[in-house]
Design a binder for these strands. Sequence first.
DNA 1: TATTGTTATACTCTATAACTATA
DNA 2: TATAGTTATAGAGTATAACAATA
Lengths: 164, 164
Amino acid sequence: MTATAAQTRPRKRSGNGTARPADADEIGLDALVGHAGYAVRRFQIWIFQDFIRTLGDVDIRPTQYSVLTVIGANPGLSQMAVAKRLGIERARLVHLLDSLEQRKYVKRVKSKADRRSHALHLTSQGETALAKFKRLAAEHERHVEDRIGKENREQLLRILAGFT
Amino acid sequence: MTATAAQTRPRKRSGNGTARPADADEIGLDALVGHAGYAVRRFQIWIFQDFIRTLGDVDIRPTQYSVLTVIGANPGLSQMAVAKRLGIERARLVHLLDSLEQRKYVKRVKSKADRRSHALHLTSQGETALAKFKRLAAEHERHVEDRIGKENREQLLRILAGFT
DNA sequence: TATTGTTATACTCTATAACTATA
DNA sequence: TATAGTTATAGAGTATAACAATA
């Protein structure tokens, strides 16, 4: 348990009494091993790196992908709605959309109902591009499956379903 | 599946033909639902926020906690060794240690064996403080358990054990 | 030549605050 | 007054490059 691990003594290294530094894989993590947050963080880094690599040719990062996907599935949403749904700061979404609009994937249409807000839509270019991004993202997902196993991936999605 | 979800049409909102904007919880995530990375990312944000809140009084963040824990369990490590083990850039570790050293939790001792490197140790203040941090971190871990369930947390740790 | 710690730069992301134009 | 979008700033975190001291 994490609580009792607090009393763990530093473990001996090498056992040969030399001053030789420990190899990376013989360094103990102590209490960290019992923390879900540590494992989740390391996994998340791995998974994002694979996503970025797999979608490297099309230069789309996870956050951009999530924005395009949500707009694609819910055309006409306001920026506030997208920001809230994805847990992104509305100030940050502004820049994300600037970039996606420059690349002609998204357009901001002035809403007639509420002239303060923009209705977000994919351009036809955006629709075509998103279809390709989704194919690449599915490929990335297969890498995840290869890494942790089909069953484990499904279990993971089930356990974390409440956070989406 | 994520692959077939690429063909999903935008789902109807409200079904009443009005221009009323969709509520946050009726906005579909489409392909995102099938991505482990999205769920993991949202979960990781939740878990870090709880960690930061739970250890708010002692002003220790997850990365600082991981550095202190590893030094505590492996006294005498070099900065390179700590950086490698935790997957932190060595340039970044410099600043983390500056702060932890200012707060008298850690000391850098010039290594006799290799005069380029520093041997890292907790101060006695640091040892005492870390014991307290570990108790608070264990409390945070119980929050995780409350949120996702004891079984699920253990399953998660098992699935992600390879990433630590 | 290579490595350790350091400094510096740039870019991403999170968290705020404040401004404008609307409502 | 409150909200949507915008601009700006500050602090984490990530990714590099370059430098001095040492190996």
